[in-house]
Design a protein around this nucleic acid. Structure first.
Lengths: 344, 344
DNA sequence: CGTGATTGAGAAACCGTTTTATCAAGACTG
DNA sequence: CAGTCTTGATAAAACGGTTTCTCAATCACG
C-alpha cells in the first residue's frame, strides 16, 4: 500500500502552508495557535497519511516509546499472559515491547540488557517463572526505570506479585464450602517461597494439623501422592494441589483407583493453565493468578515511571481468582471458554 | 552502575583527540586513517564505556536494528520456539525483536504493524499457529521486507514451513520399523492443509487403504478414536497421531482399556510439545518440527533482506526430526531432557 | 491614540550519529 | 623541482523531528 517515500512533517507543513515548527506543535497539541490552523494541519497530516518517524522523535525527546521485557521463562507459561497484559496497556500509547528470553544465562542477560539500553528503552520489565528468584542480571542503578513482575526485585524496587496467600485461602475455603472436611495439600518443593506461603494459608483454613505433601511440580508426583494418601487409612475428601499439573496427576490417579471426582473427592488446582485445566476429566477447578492483569499493571507502572511520575516503591499484591469448573462439584459448572475469557 | 550522563561519540572524539567524523569512522571500521588512530579511538571508546545511541544511528542509516514479530498464536506453543530461534540468530548482530500478539483481530493487527513501521523496523516476520492461514493483516507492498514463518504468505513471498510430508513419512516409517503393520492415523480436522499433507504421506507409506480418522485437536478426540477403533474388530497395532494432545488421549484411553503401550500398540505423536510429550505414560515418541531452527532461518533471511541482499522468494521447507521416547518401543529410550536439548 | 501585553507563527538550534565534500601535507613522477 | 596522486583527517550537511527564541501583528487600556 504505502509505497516508496514516507511523508515527513516537512511535507505536511508545506501542504498546510505553515512552518515545520507550527506543524509539529499543531500535531502534538502544544504551543499556541489558532484552532483553525491546528485543525488544518491535523487534517492535512491525516490526508497525507503522515506518521512521525519514531526515531527522530526519540532522539529529541529522549523517549523511544519502547520497553523491554526480560524473562527466563522459556515455555512462556507465565510470560505470555503477562506480555499480553503489558501490550494491552501500552499499545494505545504507541509503546512497543522488546521480548528477550535469557534462559538463566547471566552473560546472555547482559547482552540483551545492553541492547535494550542502546535502543533507549523507556523502561524494563523483568519477569520470570518463579516469584522468589531474581533474574541473573543486575538491573539496579540503571538509567531507566525497572518494574519487577512475578519475579523478585531488589530492596526498594517496584514489584508486582500475585497474592498466593489469598489464592490458597480461597482454594481451601472453596473445598470447605463444598462440604469437604479431610483436606490435604499436595504441592511443589519446599524451597519455593510460594509453596510455603500457600501451604501456610492452607493450614490457616484447614487447621494446623492438615497434611502438606511436598514433591515435584509434575503429574507424576500427583500420582505418587495419591498412592501414598490412599495407602494409609482415612484418605482425604478434598485435595488442594500446588499447580494444575499435580492436580491432573491426582485426578488421573484417582480415576485409575476408581475414586470419583468430584463425587467422592474434590480436587482444586492452582495456575489455571488452560491447556492442562481444560483437558483433565472432569475439567479442573483452579486458581487463576490473573497474570494478564498483572502485566497490565506492570505496563501502567512502567509508563508512569517513564513519564517521570512518582511511583511508590514496594511490593504490590494482586488478587487471584477462583475459576470454577467441575472437579470440586458443588457449584454449577461454567462453560470453559466463557469463564476463562470473562475477565474484565 | 552506569549513571547519569551517557557518553556520546563527541566525548570519545575529544578524549582521543580527533574529530567526531574520525571517531565515527574508526568505530565503524570505515573510512581511511592510520591503524594507530583507529586503535586509539577504539580503546578510548572502550575505556569510556561508549555505547552509540541506536536512535541517532537509525536516523541516519535508516536502519533501526529492530525487527517485528507478528503472531496470532496466543499460547505461544509455536511462537515461542520460533522466537527463540530468531533471537538466537539476531542477538549477535545487535538486532532486537518486537513481539506482538494480535489474536485474530485485523484492527489490532493494523495498529501493531503501524507501530512497527513508525519505529522503522528493518523487517517483519509473520508467524502463526497454522501453516495454511494468513494472518489477518496485509503485509504486502510494505516498505520493509517480510518473511513468513509457519504461516501462509502471499504469492511470491519468502515463506518458511516445516516439512509435514517428510515428518509424517518418518513417523509412519518408524512404526513399520518397529514391526507394526496395522496402522491408523488419528488426526485433526480435514480443513487443515497440514492434516491433508500428513495424511497423504501416511498413506503413501502405510497403504492407500490405511484408515485416517479426523476429529478435533484434543485429548478427548484421542479417547473417542480409540473407542471407535476398538469397537470394530481388528484394532490397529500402530497409531500415528496428528498432534501430541491427541496422542496423549489415545495413550490414556489405551491404558484404561488395559492395552499396553508400547508392547501391544505403538503410538507416535506430532509436535514434540514437551509439556505433553514428557507427561504421557510412557513418554511419547513424536515428531519435532524444528521450530527453533525455523526461527533461526527466518532471522537470517530477514537480516539478509534488510541488508538489501537478494533472497529468492518462494517456500522453503525445513525437515522435521523424530524424537524417540518410549511409546513406540523398539529403540533404546533416551533420557528426555537430553534428547530435547541435544539439537545443534 | 500611544504604549505595553498578548497572540500566532516562524527561524534556528538541537538531539547523536553518519556521510560527503574538502583540504593540507607528504609521496610520487617525469 | 613543479605538478599530480595519495593519504589522513576534518568541517559541515544531513536524518526528521521538537523546542526555544524571536518577532510582527493585534489587542487592551488609560
Amino acid at each position: 500500500m504505502a509505497k516508496a517515500e514516507r511523508i515527513r512533517i516537512y511535507d505536511v507543513a508545506r501542504v498546510a502552508g505553515v512552518s515545520v515548527a507550527t506543524a509539529s506543535k499543531a500535531l502534538n497539541d502544544t504551543g499556541r495557535m489558532t484552532e483553525a490552523t491546528r485543525l488544518r494541519v491535523k487534517q492535512t497530516a491525516a490526508a497525507l497519511g503522515f506518521r512521525p518517524n519514531a526515531m527522530a522523535r526519540a532522539l529529541t525527546q529522549n523517549r523511544s516509546f519502547t520497553v523491554g521485557l526480560l524473562t527466563n521463562d522459556t515455555y512462556g507459561r507465565f510470560t505470555l499472559p503477562v506480555m499480553a497484559g503489558i501490550n494491552e496497556a501500552l499499545v494505545d500509547q504507541g509503546v512497543s515491547v522488546f521480548l528477550c528470553g535469557i534462559e538463566d544465562d547471566a552473560e546472555l542477560g547482559a547482552v540483551h540488557v545492553n541492547a535494550m539500553l542502546d535502543k533507549q528503552v523507556d523502561g524494563i520489565i523483568a519477569t520470570g517463572k518463579r516469584i522468589d528468584r531474581q533474574l541473573p542480571v543486575d538491573l539496579s542503578g540503571l538509567a531507566v526505570p525497572v518494574v519487577y513482575a512475578f519475579t523478585q526485585g531488589p530492596e526498594g524496587a517496584v514489584t508486582l506479585v500475585s497474592d498466593d496467600a489469598q489464592g490458597a485461602r480461597d482454594a481451601t475455603l472453596h473445598l470447605t464450602a463444598v462440604g469437604r472436611r479431610r483436606l490435604v495439600h499436595v504441592t511443589g518443593p519446599d524451597s519455593f517461597a510460594s509453596v510455603r506461603t500457600r501451604a501456610g494459608a492452607f493450614r490457616e483454613v484447614a487447621g494446623d494439623e492438615a497434611p502438606v505433601l511436598h514433591g515435584a511440580w509434575s503429574e507424576a508426583w500427583g500420582h505418587e501422592a495419591v498412592a501414598r494418601l490412599w495407602a494409609e487409612g482415612n484418605p482425604p475428601d478434598g485435595i488442594f494441589c500446588g499447580n494444575d499439573q499435580i492436580a491432573r496427576g491426582v485426578i488421573d490417579a484417582l480415576r485409575e483407583r476408581g475414586v470419583s471426582v468430584p463425587d467422592a473427592v474434590s480436587v482444586i488446582g492452582f495456575d489455571n493453565w488452560e491447556i492442562v485445566a481444560a483437558a483433565t476429566r472432569p475439567p479442573l477447578t483452579t486458581i487463576d493468578m490473573n497474570l494478564k492483569e498483572l502485566g497490565r499493571e506492570a505496563g501502567r507502572l512502567i509508563l508512569e515511571l517513564a513519564e517521570g511520575k512518582p511511583v511508590e516503591p514496594g511490593i504490590r499484591t494482586l488478587p487471584c481468582k477462583l475459576v470454577m469448573r467441575q472437579s470440586c462439584g458443588g457449584a454449577t459448572p461454567v462453560a470453559d471458554k466463557l469463564e476463562v475469557h470473562q475477565e474484565v
